[in-house]
C-alpha cells in the first residue's frame, strides 16, 4: 500500500516532531510513505473565516497534488475533516465537486487509519506515564474518532489513561475564532485545562496539535502544570 502523507502547515513549521513520529510509526509497521513536498496547507483557515474563494484556490492545488495518491494519511483530525467533509461543501456546485468527493474518500486520519484500515492497535510503543485524552471536535464529530485513539493508547506499554470530565467539549481553539474572540476562546480553554488538571495526568494527549497548541499556550501563560503531546508522538516512543 502506497501511503501519501499530508502534514498540515503548522505541524510542518511548529511541531515537526509530530509528523516525524507518524513517519516512524508507519515505517515501523513496514509501510512505505511518500510526501508531496509541495503540500502546504489544506485551506481551512480561509474557509473557516468565510473566504471560500481563497480557500478554494488553495484546495484546488491540494486536489491536484494528491490526484494520483491511493491513500492519504494525515496527522490532524481537523485538517482531515476539512478534506473529508468540508471540501465537499467548498466545491459543491463547481466542476471539481466530483474530484473533491473522490479525494475525500482517500483521506484518513492517522489513528483511524491504523485501527480501522490496518487493524493495528499495538504499534510496539512504550511510554510509562499517566495521560488523559482530549477529543478534538473535528476529529470526534466529523471523522468519528473516539474508540480508535483509545484503542491505541490501551496498547502502549506502561501508559495509564485517565478520562477527564467533558473530554468531548471544545478546548476553545476554533482556528481564527481564537483570535477574533480571544476572551471566549480563552475561557473555554480554561475550562478544558481545569478538567485535565483534575485527572492529575502527566500529559494531555490528542489527535490534533492545534487544540494542544491552544491548551499548552494557555497553561504556560497561566503557569499551570500541564504538558501536551500528540498521539503520534506517544506511539513513536519506545
Amino acid at each position: 500500500m502506497k501511503i501519501s502523507l499530508f502534514i498540515p502547515c503548522f505541524i510542518d513549521a511548529c511541531y515537526p516532531q509530530v509528523g516525524i513520529s507518524m513517519v516512524k510509526v508507519l515505517e515501523r509497521l513496514g509501510h512505505q510513505v511518500e510526501y508531496p513536498e509541495d503540500f502546504t496547507c489544506c485551506g481551512q483557515p480561509a474557509f473557516n473565516s468565510g473566504y471560500w474563494d481563497e480557500a478554494r484556490a488553495v484546495a484546488e492545488k491540494v486536489l491536484a497534488m494528491y490526484r494520483s495518491a491511493e491513500i492519504i494519511v494525515g496527522v490532524s483530525g481537523s485538517c482531515g475533516a476539512m478534506m473529508m467533509t468540508f471540501y465537499k461543501e467548498l466545491f459543491h456546485g463547481t466542476p471539481l465537486e466530483a474530484e473533491a468527493k473522490a479525494h475525500a474518500a482517500k483521506v484518513w486520519e492517522f489513528s483511524d487509519f491504523l485501527v480501522t484500515k490496518l487493524g493495528v492497535t499495538d504499534v510496539g510503543a512504550k511510554f510509562p506515564a499517566k495521560v488523559t485524552f482530549h477529543d478534538g471536535c473535528h476529529g470526534l464529530r466529523e471523522v468519528g474518532l473516539k474508540k480508535q485513539p483509545r484503542a491505541l493508547l490501551a496498547k502502549v506499554q506502561g501508559l495509564e489513561l485517565i478520562e477527564m470530565d467533558a473530554a468531548e467539549s471544545c478546548c476553545g481553539f476554533g482556528g481564527t475564532f481564537s483570535v477574533k474572540f480571544p476572551m471566549i476562546s480563552t475561557a473555554m480553554g480554561e475550562v478544558k485545562c481545569d478538567s485535565a488538571l483534575k485527572t492529575k495526568a502527566d500529559y494531555i494527549v490528542s489527535c490534533d496539535s492545534s487544540c494542544l497548541m491552544h491548551i499548552q499556550g494557555l497553561a504556560d501563560r497561566q503557569k499551570k502544570p500541564l504538558r501536551t503531546m500528540h498521539l503520534a508522538e506517544v506511539l513513536a516512543k519506545q
Partner: peptide, 17 residues
C-alpha cells in the same frame, strides 16, 4: 490577539520539510 492570553509555540529550527 493570541498572545494577550496565551503563549505562542515557537517555529521549529528545522521544519518537517
Amino acid at each position: 490577539a493570541w498572545t494577550q492570553s496565551r503563549e505562542l509555540p515557537p517555529l521549529a529550527r528545522n521544519s518537517f520539510k
